[in-house]
């Protein structure tokens, strides 16, 4: 049983049946809370996002979270990683999750052009898993030191494999894309 009130769950049910029609033939699942999970190909991501954002019934206009998880056991598909996009509709108060299977040598298109929020989230995903986002303005590590070797949230990285650094590196001012892009 979910902690959400029944009205919210009913709205999620309605959304799911709408998605079943709109994205017929695509892999569509539901999670423990009844929220819909739509699986996409990396090449379709930006196009589908455009359509999900403008669709009158969905209006998924906010990126709630972006993350990656390791699919090394192959439960969710043949590829190594799964990129997860948590979307939220500010008008309809609905949630939708997009998932993209990513191979180890494959790039995912960056969504920083749509949401500035994706900037640090994609950097974190790159830092923790080594997944690269093509078109990201400044793809470097976010939490770990630049001298860090490996990607700590991959399953093969051991919990005890510590890499201490005695000092911190100087910070550089990040390069900017064209000014006023998000104004």
């Amino acid at each position: 049983m979910s902690q959400l009130v029944p009205e919210v769950l009913a709205k999620q049910d309605e959304l799911h049946s709408y998605l079943e029609g709109a994205f017929a033939g695509q892999r569509l699942e539901r999670d423990a809370n009844g929220e819909s999970i739509l699986w996409l190909k990396g090449s379709d991501l930006l196009g589908t996002l455009e359509c999900i954002r403008s669709d009158e019934r969905l209006q998924m206009d906010r990126l709630s979270d972006l993350t990656v998880y390791d699919n090394v056991d192959g439960v969710d598909g043949a590829e190594r990683f799964v990129a997860v996009y948590q979307l939220y509709s500010m008008k309809r108060h609905l949630r939708l999750r997009l998932k993209v299977l990513v191979a180890e040598d494959q790039d995912v298109p960056s969504v920083t052009g749509i949401w500035s929020a994706a900037n640090w989230l994609e950097r974190e995903a790159f830092d923790m898993f080594g997944v690269r986002f093509s078109g990201h303005p400044d793809l470097r590590r976010l939490l770990m030191d630049e001298r860090f070797v490996g990607h700590p949230l991959r399953k093969e990285y051991g919990l005890e494999d510590r890499q201490p650094f005695p000092d911190s590196l100087p910070v550089r001012i990040a390069e900017r894309r064209s000014e006023g892009q998000h104004s």
């Binding site: 590590r141 976010l142 939490l143 770990m144 030191d145 700590p152 949230l153 919990l159 001012i173 900017r176």
Partner: peptide, 15 residues
């Protein structure tokens, strides 16, 4: 202009 640098309190809680 400014740039934030974070991660000084990273304790691998997700790991």
């Amino acid at each position: 202009d400014s740039t934030c640098e974070i991660g000084y309190l990273h304790r691998a809680i997700e790991k």
